[in-house]
Amino acid sequence: MSQLFFGYFAGMIAITAILVVVFRNPVYSALSLLVMFFHVAGLFITLHAEFLAAVQIIVYAGAILVLYLFVVMILNVTQDDHYHSQWRIAGVVCIPLFIEFMLLLSGGAGALNTGSPSLQSGPHEAITANNTLAIGKTLFSTYLFPFEVASLVLLVAMIGAIVIAKRDIGEHDA
């Protein structure tokens, strides 16, 4: 049963991720990205990580993608063919990706056998424990320093964005 769900979610993620790049209409691209976020959240739920699933939808689908749509609609880039037909760059990017993929496929069989016991014990702990509580405790004890660093970096980025956006207004006033 869980295999079936995983297959569905993984397949849909792959298909919609490809559709994001394939669609010519940016609004359709954004929508297939939305569908993809949902299926990623579904994957989290099959791993009993409900908190991550909810955060995935709230942050990515609820906030970030809406802003994408916002920009796409305001700029009205439907007619912009400037970024289409970039086959050469795509080809250059694809070669290392393909090699990595092949390496993973050939080396993956051995790694799977050694790694499976620890992987299996993971989800069972998550079922019994309160998932949100576990994430909170880990973030604020073991990973407190990286967490604070990440929030500081985000704060700096936020202030930077405001400064850049406000520069125009300051010049007009002066």
Partner: peptide, 23 residues
């Protein structure tokens, strides 16, 4: 066990209907 987050998550999706309907 994430009841309220579930509601917030789906409430935030209501915006899509409106913004796409408008577009």
């Amino acid at each position: 066990n994430i009841g309220i987050l579930y509601i917030l998550a789906f409430a935030s999706l209501g915006a899509y209907g409106i913004i796409l309907g408008g577009w």
